[in-house]
Design a protein around this nucleic acid. Structure first.
Lengths: 227, 227
DNA sequence: ATGGAATTATGAGTGTGCTCATATTTGTGG
DNA sequence: CCACAAATATGAGCACACTCATAATTCCAT
């Protein structure tokens, strides 16, 4: 088991002791991370993931080339950070949005996806290069296999929760794990469509979302499918 | 417009003139390509796409490092070759299999996917690293964007053809381009599931295929969805 | 304040995928 | 058979992502 990043045990003591003093180290660390992310976002958008080099990112962030890798294991991880944050963000948002709690499933899912798409809009230029790689397991011979899968576990549980609630309300039959799994595949399809959608305000994608979700749920409601 | 590979105009004259004499060049070329593919398949399976190096592939194939790139633009392209060949293969097979021509759509699609999965079984260890990259557009800033999309056009047209025939038979409503598009997303989901399926003979995947296809088509048959 | 431990920064070094000017091989017309 | 052109092979060289031994910084007990 390798520790890819230089790790610290800080924070544990901090959390217990004085919470008003963040400490010079933590502040610096956070500032550096923010600078990296800021510069990386700019370069990824302008040059794409492939076109932007870690050397340039480091230079413009004012750090040494090696320092970058103390913050992100790989360049790909750096790019994926934006995608991961978007998932976290939407989960928080959904938890807070109480009016959605009792809305019909179609509306919930539509809102979730729409919100996610909104969120990744600034990353449109490079997110396509990276999204699918995060989904895929690396080679089974590669020790990173599990790790890359874990990225999605939190999100899948989130979706699973939404679906389970709908199952309990009797909106849809019991789908089990496959429900969230199917949704993930569906979401990936939507993102792909979205990436190629040149209509104003991505209207076409929104229309497709609306129609396809309505259709899928209308169907699930009708039949009594036994899985 | 760059020509990435050293190209030849050979073959044109050959085709018109003497077809019994392949010519030393063409033979050598083909042999080299075969050796590369043989070695690459072995190494990709044993070490994964990331673990196998172009240096080792070249060495074991008995060619210089640079020669490899006269045959395949990138290492990724080399790996994708196996996936592309599989698509070609299944299209040929389907065209030849006359009994399938008038089979119900579910059976057709099931057969197609099952055949494709069978075909990629030897590549299981590394295909996951590569499949999704071929689907995705590279960055819009990257000139390779269109190219990587073109990989799928042939296959999508093939699926489109099958769906259109079913539309004309009245099996399903008219879906337009979205039909093939949805199928591709579905297929990607199945492949992902297949990659993680450890059941004997991938039974779970086959069961899922069966159920999900039957369900999807039963649904499409029922409603009169206007797109 | 001070020494020492824990943490973070550094950049020369490594092996990689890939390029390109050059050399070699193959095909063709005289 | 011989020049000449076209196609193909070659490997030194390049920029890249990433590593790691070492240096610099921060923290804390004394």
């Amino acid at each position: 088991m390798k520790a890819h990043l230089q790790r610290s045990n800080s924070g544990r003591r901090q959390a217990v002791a004085n919470r008003a003093k963040p400490g010079k180290r933590i502040i610096k660390k956070q500032r550096t991370k923010e600078r990296i992310l800021e510069v990386a976002l700019d370069l990824f958008c302008r040059k794409g993931l492939h076109g932007a080099t870690t050397k340039e990112i480091s230079r413009k962030a004012g750090i040494a080339e090696g320092t970058l890798f103390n913050y992100f294991e790989t360049k790909e991880d750096l790019a994926l950070y934006f995608f991961e944050k978007e998932a976290e963000e939407v989960m928080k948002w959904f938890a807070a949005e109480k009016s959605l709690r009792r809305a019909p499933l179609a509306e919930q899912l539509f809102s979730v996806i729409q919100r996610q798409l909104d969120y990744i809009t600034p990353y449109e230029a490079f997110i396509g290069e990276v999204v699918f790689r995060s989904l895929q397991p690396r080679s089974k011979l590669n020790p990173l296999s599990l790790e890359s899968q874990e990225r999605w576990i939190g999100y899948l549980r989130f979706i699973r929760g939404i679906l389970e609630a709908a199952e309990k309300r009797g909106e849809i039959p019991e789908l089990g794990d496959l429900g969230a799994y199917a949704f993930a595949a569906y979401y990936m399809g939507i993102v792909t469509y979205w990436l190629h959608d040149n209509s104003r305000g991505k209207q076409k994608t929104l229309a497709l979302l609306d129609r396809s979700l309505a259709m899928a749920l209308a169907i699930l409601r009708k039949g009594d499918w036994k899985w």
